[in-house]
């Protein structure tokens, strides 16, 4: 394509948007509405997942040792645990540290009567996992390690969190798939109406001898621009609404915000920005590309 033709096509694509203001507005509004809902659900689900993940990271397995174990063997066991892929963090808690923790948490001023450490011999490893669903497998492994006396875990917490994570995953996929399907249906209808209005222009172009590419290009450019604008508007809205909602939650429900760890908008946008723009551009491109094709057989 010649440079002048490229600019002509680009300019025609832009002009088409203004020539068919109503159609352009309807398309932008449809894409925006769908992507706004998509962004909203994504933000909520991403936060849920983040909260569950944070809770998962707090779940730990405690590994106790045989009474006659040597320090060298404890260190060896620690290294073995660290090498496991499902393990994110391992903390060694000595018997003294364990007693200090117990005193602070449960006894406070009533600990004066204890002259010796009653938890002597109860030094342990606190093992944190990447994926809480791997807890059972890790416990089975640890129980088989020579020198390990007992492994304590919270099976119910692990199971609940693991199930919650799975459920959120399924709900996310389901809702996002439905939203995308609805968006594509609405947008293809809007594009079809817009192009049907200009069926005559396409047929004139074909009769005069325009190539399929030349006929299609302005419509595709128009579709891409509409898709971009349609994606940018909900992104800006979500940015604004999300920050406001976060501030509102922090101010009005301070207990909630201290318990739950919400994602910053930047974290949300890391995925939402490219995905929304890609969906907007993709829908605009495909919608116009496919719909124009129907009218090219003249």
């Amino acid at each position: 394509m010649k440079i002048s033709s490229f600019f002509y096509t680009l300019w025609q694509g832009i002009k088409n948007i203004f020539r068919n203001k109503l159609f352009s507005l309807a398309s932008v509004a449809t894409i925006s509405a769908c992507l706004f809902l998509f962004g909203l659900f994504y933000s909520v689900l991403a936060n849920f997942q983040h909260i569950v993940k944070t809770a998962e990271e707090g779940v730990c397995i405690v590994v106790f040792f045989d009474e006659d174990i040597t320090d060298a063997r404890i260190e060896e066991i620690g290294d073995m645990i660290k090498r496991r892929a499902e393990v994110s963090k391992v903390n060694f808690v000595s018997a003294d540290e364990a007693w200090e923790g117990f005193k602070t948490e449960y006894l406070r001023d009533y600990s004066d009567g204890f002259l010796e450490n009653p938890l002597e011999g109860l030094s342990n490893y606190e093992v944190y996992l990447n994926d809480v669903s791997m807890q059972s497998a890790l416990v089975t492994y640890l129980e088989s390690v020579p020198g390990v006396n007992e492994v304590k875990r919270s099976e119910l917490t692990a199971l609940t969190l693991s199930n919650a994570n799975k459920l959120i995953g399924y709900i996310s996929i389901g809702i996002i798939a439905i939203l995308l399907a609805v968006s594509i249906f609405l947008i293809s209808n809007t594009v079809t109406i817009g192009i049907t209005v200009r069926k005559e222009e396409i047929s004139i172009m074909k009769y005069i001898g325009a190539t399929d590419f030349f006929v299609r290009a302005p419509f595709v450019i128009e579709g891409i621009i509409i898709g971009l604008v349609g994606a940018a508007i909900p992104l800006a809205l979500i940015y604004f609404v999300y920050n406001r909602a976060l501030n509102f939650l922090k101010e009005q429900f301070s207990v909630l915000s201290s318990l739950l760890n919400f994602l910053a908008i930047e974290e949300i946008f890391k995925n939402l920005l490219p995905v929304s723009l890609a969906i907007g551009v993709g829908i605009g491109f495909l919608g116009s590309f496919i719909t124009v094709r129907k009218h090219l057989r003249v």
């Binding site: 394509m1 033709s5 020539r19 004139i204 009769y207 005069i208 001898g209 325009a210 006929v215």
Partner: peptide, 30 residues
């Protein structure tokens, strides 16, 4: 591109002026 076509209902682009309608035929064949 070797043919010219004229229709009963003119088939002009109503949103473009006379000059643009004629130039349109040249632009689309680059």
């Amino acid at each position: 591109r070797n043919l010219g076509v004229v229709f009963q209902d003119f088939r002009l682009l109503k949103d473009r002026n006379v000059y643009e309608n004629v130039a349109f035929a040249q632009r689309i064949i680059q």
